[in-house]
Design a protein around this nucleic acid. Structure first.
Lengths: 170, 170
DNA sequence: AACAGTATGTAAATATATTGACATAATATG
DNA sequence: CATATTATGTCAATATATTTACATACTGTT
């Protein structure tokens, strides 16, 4: 009689996978909880932190389009829309109509936003990093980053495949 | 003149930490997006998947208290309350008053919930694991798990410290 | 130039997830 | 035993984040 549907190796992999994804799930929860707390005095959240991190890069000196931001942060444009609206209301960013495409919006940091980011948020974020990675060697961090990117690449493929055919081809 | 506020090593660590947390942020987003899609035909989400995973353990044979579940999943009780309400409405779980403590609630899986979990959700979850970890060796998975747990432990400490003193001592 | 397809942004509905404030029950301390 | 503290759960407000559906603008082909 057949007990193991696969070969036994698969069963061990599944149990490992289960533990891995459970820990990733917990990490995701705690990242947002502790991360948002770290910058809450500035009125920021982890998402807004990610947006400001993206906009503060030298590459984004002239601003970023909304589509560009959604691809960079891997969130839907519908979600980003709300986040940006709140950040605009807070005066951290500015939304201007795109130059070439009349549909698009160009997102840039305001002076006030840049001040909050560099003078208030960044020091707290660095302190956050120090605590969260206190017992990580540079090698540990490099390896962790490697595995996260490996996993990310696979999940990106799954995301693309799903988005292409929600019901099969039209 | 002083350019680097720390010693140069710290600067390299900060940049590594920045990349690491950005990738963790993206992983968290994609985990919920692709994970929920994997079980959406069963009307489940990644959170409900985590709850059913917890309740289906042999250890939880006789059900779990709500506080027990919040500590296990590392979410707030206010959050879990809503998730459980939806799962109860869907008939996946049952909520009974606690035996000893009149405030507490005992959460158990229903027969219907157990059927959905084992017959429909689990096969899809295993397929999900296979795709997400397709190029991970057992060693890769073990190391990834190790680093996630290491990070989790640090963030847990930060979470506890914050919860103890939201404003400093009373 | 007309027209199909695609890209971009918004609106509404639903599900997480947090904090703050409240009520109630159990526990500890005097 | 009375009281202070703690534990447990709920309600309300706010911020993510997704899906579906829609409006508009650009692109490519014919």
């Amino acid at each position: 009689m057949i007990i193991e549907s696969d070969d036994g190796i698969s069963q061990a992999r599944i149990e490992l996978a289960n533990r891995l994804f459970f820990r990733l799930y917990q990490c995701a929860n705690l990242l947002h909880k502790t991360g948002t707390r770290a910058v809450q005095e500035e009125g920021l959240t982890t998402q807004q932190w990610a947006v400001m991190g993206a906009l503060s890069r030298p590459k984004a000196k002239d601003g970023m389009g909304m589509g560009e931001l959604t691809r960079y942060l891997m969130v839907t444009r519908q979600n980003l829309s709300g986040v940006l609206k709140r950040m605009e209301a807070a005066g951290h960013i500015q939304v201007a109509p795109g130059a070439h495409d009349r549909r698009s919006r160009l997102i840039t940091m305001t002076e006030a936003g840049r001040y909050v980011w560099t003078q208030q948020a960044l020091p707290k974020i660095h302190a956050y990093y120090r605590q969260a990675l206190i017992d990580f060697s540079v090698s540990d961090m490099t390896h962790s980053l490697h595995y996260l990117m490996k996993l990310l690449k696979n999940m990106e493929k799954m995301d693309d495949a799903d988005s292409d055919e929600p019901n099969s081809q039209p």
